[in-house]
């Protein structure tokens, strides 16, 4: 396959996301301009200019009308997808690490970092009408997070939120119970040690399972109802992102040696491949090379016929699978 390389960013990619139909691909990086591309030919539709810091997280709503980004400049901004204009800006006390629209996009959640004497906090905001006043509105719900900070987040429809934490914990928050939230299941990704944080979480197609990617060198598949651990995919490097194929029983893992460790280890290559695992048998069956640094984000195209990866090297690579991928039969 001939990947398309998108080089609209000047620094490491932090997250990539397809919209629901998969015709657009959004990307954010440690420079301050998230970009949006046509996934078919790699043409850049535009960039969202306005942030003044590292853009950590992006999300796009169900109808691809609004785009949200959270950044290190302590703002969470909502943009019009069609014009690239900023329509709402919410300022928080510390940098915004994760954000996501709810399924209906009537609500959105964002979490802030534990920094500058601020505790990690989760905010749920009303996004039915987004305009200049959005920044002044009080959030619907404010949940202080005691303990380790939130490093990734997922909405389960409009009812609950699943958060992945820096210590490897995964917590589900029920929002329906009298607007009081509680964490009814804490499933450890790993032993409660430092640095095993959950880098990324992604849904499967029908929202019954999600996959987590963790620094403990594994990706894990969980049942969304009760956070039951279903499968574990083991590698020998930190996993930064994982995605589930919508049409095949495949998952793709992206990761690699951390950028800060590259110089302190000897000449061995860092294994910056995208790695394909069989979802059920937990066995690796394929690899795709390409990036010069660790992969920070991977995403399957919603039609399952391709995938994209964004790396520490600042490139997004859009792949369309060859027929060999579809013809490949996993032996078991």
């Amino acid at each position: 396959m001939k990947p398309i390389m998108l080089q609209g960013h000047e620094r490491a990619i932090t997250q990539i996301k397809y919209n629901r139909e998969g015709d657009l691909l959004f990307s954010s990086s440690k420079d301050n301009k998230p970009n949006v591309w046509y996934s078919l030919n790699g043409e850049r539709l535009g960039s969202f200019n306005g942030h003044q810091g590292v853009v950590w997280c992006i999300d796009v709503d169900w109808t691809t009308t609004r785009f949200m980004s959270g950044a290190g400049d302590r703002t969470c901004r909502i943009w019009d997808c069609e014009t690239g204009k900023e329509i709402g800006c919410i300022t928080s006390a510390s940098s915004v690490r994760t954000c996501m629209f709810s399924y209906s996009a009537n609500m959105a959640v964002y979490t802030t970092d534990k920094a500058m004497k601020q505790d990690c906090e989760m905010f749920i905001i009303d996004t039915r009408v987004v305009d200049d006043s959005t920044g002044q509105q009080d959030p619907i719900l404010r949940i202080p997070i005691k303990g380790s900070r939130v490093s990734s987040i997922l909405w389960d429809l409009d009812d609950s939120i699943i958060s992945g934490h820096e210590n490897g914990e995964i917590t589900q928050w029920d929002l329906k119970v009298k607007h009081l939230c509680f964490s009814y299941c804490g499933s450890k990704h790993y032993l409660p040690e430092e640095n095993f944080f959950v880098n990324d979480m992604q849904w499967n197609k029908d929202g019954t399972m999600f996959i987590t990617a963790s620094k403990d060198h594994t990706a894990k598949l969980f049942d969304a109802k009760d956070l039951l651990l279903l499968k574990t995919y083991k590698t020998e490097r930190p996993v930064n992102s994982a995605s589930i194929s919508p049409i095949m029983e495949h998952v793709v893992l992206g990761g690699g040696q951390e950028a800060m460790d590259v110089t302190t280890t000897s000449t061995r290559v860092g294994k910056f491949d995208s790695r394909f695992f069989h979802m059920v048998f937990e066995e690796e069956f394929g690899r795709v090379k390409g990036h010069f640094g660790p992969i920070n984000s991977v995403a399957f195209h919603p039609d399952g016929k391709g995938y994209s990866s964004g790396g520490e090297d600042g490139y997004v690579r859009v792949h369309t699978f060859d027929s060999s991928y579809f013809e490949y039969n996993f032996d078991y």
Binding site: M1, K2, P3, M5, L6, R44, F276, D322
Partner: peptide, 10 residues
Amino acid sequence: TTIVAEDVYM
């Protein structure tokens, strides 16, 4: 901004 990269194989 958009480059077709070299062929890669799985």
